[in-house]
C-alpha cells in the first residue's frame, strides 16, 4: 500500500520536474532577451570575459554592466513612440473594418446554410494561410499607382488579409456556441436578421467579439512581412522597427546592435503577450479559425 503511494508520489515529482523544465525551456530565450536588453553578460562570473560564437567570429566583452540604458535609448529615440502609435493606429483601424465586415458575415455563416458557403469559408481559410508573396506584387504595383504605399489606409487594408478571416470565423464560432433555439425563437418572433444580430447575437457574443478583436490586434501588431515591404518612414510599425533599427530610413539597414534589438524586442512583445494571455482560452480557435473543434 505505502509502496504504491511512494510510486505515485515519485511519478508526481517526475511530472512536475518535467513541467518545470518545459516552462524553463519556454521562458529561457525570452528572459535572455530581456536580460541582454539590460546588457547583462554572465561571462565575467567565470572568467571576466563574455563570448558569443558565430562561426569563426569571436566577440568578447567584459564586465557586468547591468543597465537599463538600452531600454531608455529605445524609448528616448524619437521614432520609437512613433512606431508604437503607428502600430496601434494601423491595427485598430484594420480590426474595426474587419469587425464591420466580419460580424455580419460570421453571423450569416453561423446561422444559415446556403450555396457559396463553402466558397466563402474556403476563401477565408486561404486568406489566412496564403503566402504573402502571392498577393504582394499586385499590392506593390497598385499601391504605387494609387499612392497608398506607406499610408495608414493602405496598411489597414492589407492587414484585412489577417483580420477578416480571424474576426469572421471566430465570430461564427461564438455565434455557434449560443444555443440555436434562442435564434429560432427570435426568427419565429418575426425579428429581422439585423434586429437579431444587434439585439440578440451581439450582446450574447460580446465577450467573444472582444476576444476576437484582441486576437486580431495581436496578429497585426506582430506582423512583419507586409510591414517590411509596404511601410516606410511614415507608417513603419513596431515589429518592423524592432528589426531594422529605430531611426534610419527604410532603405538602409543599419548595423544591428543586439542590445538595442533585444531591448526593442522586449518592449514590442510586452503588450502582445499580455493581450494574448487575456484571450488564451480562444487561442486554438483563433489560430485554426475554428477548424480544429
Amino acid at each position: 500500500m505505502s509502496e504504491n503511494k511512494n510510486k505515485k508520489n515519485n511519478s508526481r515529482y517526475i511530472r512536475y520536474l518535467l513541467l518545470v523544465s518545459a516552462a524553463l525551456w519556454v521562458l529561457w530565450p525570452i528572459s535572455i532577451m530581456v536580460e541582454e536588453g539590460f546588457r547583462v553578460d554572465i561571462g565575467p562570473l567565470f572568467s571576466g570575459r563574455g563570448a558569443s560564437f558565430v562561426g569563426e567570429f569571436f566577440q568578447g566583452q567584459g564586465g557586468i554592466k547591468f543597465s537599463p540604458i538600452e531600454y531608455q535609448k529605445a524609448l528616448r529615440i524619437e521614432a520609437y513612440p512613433r512606431l508604437l502609435v503607428n502600430s496601434v493606429i494601423i491595427a485598430v483601424s484594420s480590426v474595426l473594418v474587419a469587425i464591420l465586415a466580419g460580424l455580419p458575415a460570421g453571423f450569416t455563416l453561423a446561422m444559415y446554410k446556403f450555396r457559396g458557403k463553402a466558397f466563402i469559408t474556403y476563401a477565408l481559410l486561404a486568406m489566412r494561410t496564403i503566402s504573402p508573396f502571392a498577393v504582394l506584387l499586385p499590392f506593390f504595383l497598385i499601391y504605387g499607382r494609387l499612392g497608398l504605399f506607406d499610408t495608414y489606409q493602405g496598411m489597414a487594408f492589407v492587414y484585412l488579409i489577417i483580420n477578416l478571416p480571424i474576426i469572421t470565423m471566430m465570430m461564427r464560432g461564438f455565434f455557434k456556441d449560443i444555443p440555436k433555439e434562442i435564434f429560432e425563437a427570435a426568427f419565429m418572433s418575426g425579428a429581422s436578421d439585423s434586429y437579431i444580430l444587434r439585439k440578440v447575437a451581439l450582446p450574447l457574443a460580446l465577450p467573444g467579439l472582444a476576444a476576437a478583436a484582441v486576437f486580431a490586434f495581436v496578429g497585426t501588431w506582430n506582423e512583419f512581412f507586409y510591414a517590411l515591404f509596404l511601410t516606410g518612414a511614415v507608417t513603419k510599425t513596431v515589429s518592423r522597427g524592432v528589426w531594422s533599427g529605430f531611426s534610419e530610413s527604410i532603405e538602409s539597414f543599419k548595423i544591428l546592435e543586439f542590445d538595442e534589438l533585444n531591448a526593442g524586442g522586449t518592449l514590442a512583445i510586452i503588450p502582445a503577450v499580455i493581450l494574448s494571455l487575456a484571450v488564451q482560452r480562444y487561442l486554438a480557435r483563433g489560430i485554426t479559425l475554428g477548424a480544429a473543434e
Binding site: 518545459a22 521562458l27 506582430n222 512583419f224 512583445i269 502582445a272 503577450v273 488564451q280 489560430i287
Partner: peptide, 13 residues
C-alpha cells in the same frame, strides 16, 4: 499560461 507565451511573440522577435 506559460507554455502559450511564445505564440504571442512576433515571429521576427
Amino acid at each position: 499560461s506559460i507554455f502559450v507565451i511564445p505564440i504571442a511573440i512576433a515571429p521576427i522577435v
